[in-house]
């Protein structure tokens, strides 16, 4: 069974991304002006605790993401580089 060439670079993805950027823009522009920050700086000591860090172990965390990227098809939204993974 012959198959057709998969879809060429679709504008779909970039359009979706642009929509997210627009939403973020709205959030950082006038939308927030009527809402006051509800967690004051002096209330953020728990959030500033190192145990709350998403990047607690620096390059060790990057390696963990790299291990998955090399063995799974999913990629992106991980903040890591790609290509030349030495994984085959």
């Amino acid at each position: 069974m012959k198959r057709n060439m998969p879809k060429q670079l679709s504008s779909l993805f970039v359009n979706k991304l642009a929509l997210v950027v627009l939403l973020i823009s709205c959030g950082t522009l006038s939308g927030c002006s009527s809402i006051k920050p509800w967690v004051q700086p002096y209330e953020r000591q728990n959030l500033a605790d190192p145990i709350m860090s998403a990047n607690r172990h620096g390059i060790a965390a990057s390696h963990a993401a790299h291990v998955y990227e090399a063995r799974e098809s999913a990629r992106g939204a991980e903040g890591t580089g790609g290509g030349g993974c030495g994984c085959n």
Binding site: V14, K16, L17, I24, V39, L47, G76
Partner: peptide
């Protein structure tokens, strides 16, 4: 191309959302 937002929701909770398109 990627975009993300990180939001402090309470004094004990942070939420983040990110998207990334790759071609």
């Amino acid at each position: 191309v990627r975009a993300g937002i990180s939001q402090i929701l309470t004094a004990n909770l942070i939420a983040s959302f990110e998207v990334e398109a790759i071609a």
